[in-house]
Design a protein around this nucleic acid. Structure first.
Lengths: 260, 260
DNA sequence: CTAATAGTGTCTATAAGACAATATTTG
DNA sequence: CAAATATTGTCTTATAGACACTATTAG
């Protein structure tokens, strides 16, 4: 293609080569679903990490569950495609944490032709997905725990692999960044934060969680106590008898290193 | 597209929609270039992080420097495209650390049409790129420090943005993973490792580097001392008067968390 | 001896890690 | 008082951080 004579636009023919048949964006929509708990007194909520899937009705993979998604158009970036699809699926325009995950391009992954898919992940409130689920009578919408979806379901295309990758990624991010805030109200207690982390990363266990997050120097600045106008600490007893300090995330995320 | 009647392949027309004009893979090829040093005795090598660019000779952006790359074909995944291009550029088939970076799809990013690019980064030995540079008389090949390329050069397309993203990513990875091993021989001294880290992450500074990496529990298992058949520690005095212990990376990478 | 890097000693202030204990409420 | 969560006490050992110091060897 880089011939000497190709010095200008006239010599360039955009249709010389075989080109793909479509470039979709597929979205892994995660939510934390609250579990019912039976307890004698107030108790902390427990959650499950769930993912939204749609049952396909047409060829290929008719009847199988698949990630929601749609084809990209010439006048939009792939991120905009994903945002457009997310809005179509949830009815909500923003406030979701939408993030690029990766490209899936193995030959033969889509029987319709040469179709290269781009995976995104989004963190959505449970209420939004529940509304979507009941409102849409045209499409069958399902909310599954990630483990159900990975182990029990036969997902369409390579969507199992995508979900697997998205799951690993969200676990990484839960520990490395402050995305936990996407699953929490603006003000929250340390107990709530702990539950959220544990839901996404079941292995997470930290006996001295409160002390480490509140009073070790290397974690300074991630969270801050919420206070009222008079500087009095704001407490909540929504989930506990003894009121707990409320916190919010700051904009700071510490930089981690395996060497220091 | 999901009409009720689309229950089988016959009703699916792959050419109903406008499709992209090409899906290239572009590769950010990083290398550590050794700097000349004048010193009275043996001394540690210093490096610069460099990136390989190719001068375009045809429209568009004729004359501008660009990342090497090429279009994906129907029978290969994008990773395979990148590997094929990398081999064409370096002559070497494997041993390079090739990794997917992201997708660049902003409308108008390529005047040739609707062209969605996928960026990869590769870590390549200096010698390979030098060979390539002198051997190829058909194409002008340049090796620039990352700062030169970002600040002084007008790169083609959105390649400045890609390079910027790749630079951030390699810095992250240098601190979070053991990619330093891609820039080191199988056995190396802690001084060498320190130089490599500092080259990619100039802000990195750790006074007690040796002690922390060798004798803190949280860093146990990242490195191991190299010993001979008899269990005697292997030393090197290649870069120092006093011989230094040789190390190798294990397969272990610690999991970091901002919460623990 | 000098230069250059490799590594240890030492000291203080924090932090990790494991549990026990106490605090605060509601029912 | 019992239940449930929130938080602090306490103890030992490990780590951080800063600097001074010693070790090794070619030239």
């Amino acid at each position: 293609m880089s011939k000497e004579q190709d010095q200008n636009k006239q010599n360039y023919d955009v249709k010389k080569y075989r080109t793909p048949d479509g470039i979709p964006a597929d979205i892994v929509m995660f939510t934390l679903a609250r579990l019912e708990r039976k307890a004698a007194t107030k108790s902390l909520p427990r959650f499950e990490l769930k993912v939204m899937l749609i049952r396909r009705r047409s060829w290929p993979f008719a009847g199988a569950w698949a990630l929601p998604g749609g084809f990209s158009q010439e006048d939009e970036s792939l991120f905009e495609t994903a945002r457009r699809e997310l809005k179509e699926e949830t009815g909500v325009d923003d406030g979701h944490h939408l993030e690029y995950l990766g490209v899936y391009s193995k030959p033969g992954r889509d029987p319709r032709g040469w179709i290269i898919s781009h995976a995104f992940s989004a963190l959505v409130e449970e209420s939004v997905l529940e509304k979507r689920q009941s409102a849409d009578d045209a499409q069958e919408v399902g909310l599954f725990t990630v483990n159900e979806a990975l182990e029990d379901l036969d997902l369409a295309f390579d969507h199992r692999e995508i979900l697997q990758d998205a799951y690993k990624r969200i676990q990484q991010q839960m520990l490395h960044t402050t995305i936990a805030k996407q699953f929490l109200p603006p003000h929250f207690t340390l107990g709530e934060l702990y539950q959220v982390i544990q839901t996404v990363v079941p292995d997470f266990a930290e006996l001295n969680f409160i002390r480490k997050i509140t009073s070790t120097r290397s974690r300074q600045g991630i969270l801050e106590e919420v206070r009222d106008e008079n500087g009095k600490a704001l407490l909540s007893n929504q989930y506990s008898q003894r009121p707990a300090q409320l916190y919010r995330f700051t904009d700071y995320t510490p930089q981690l290193s395996i060497y220091t």
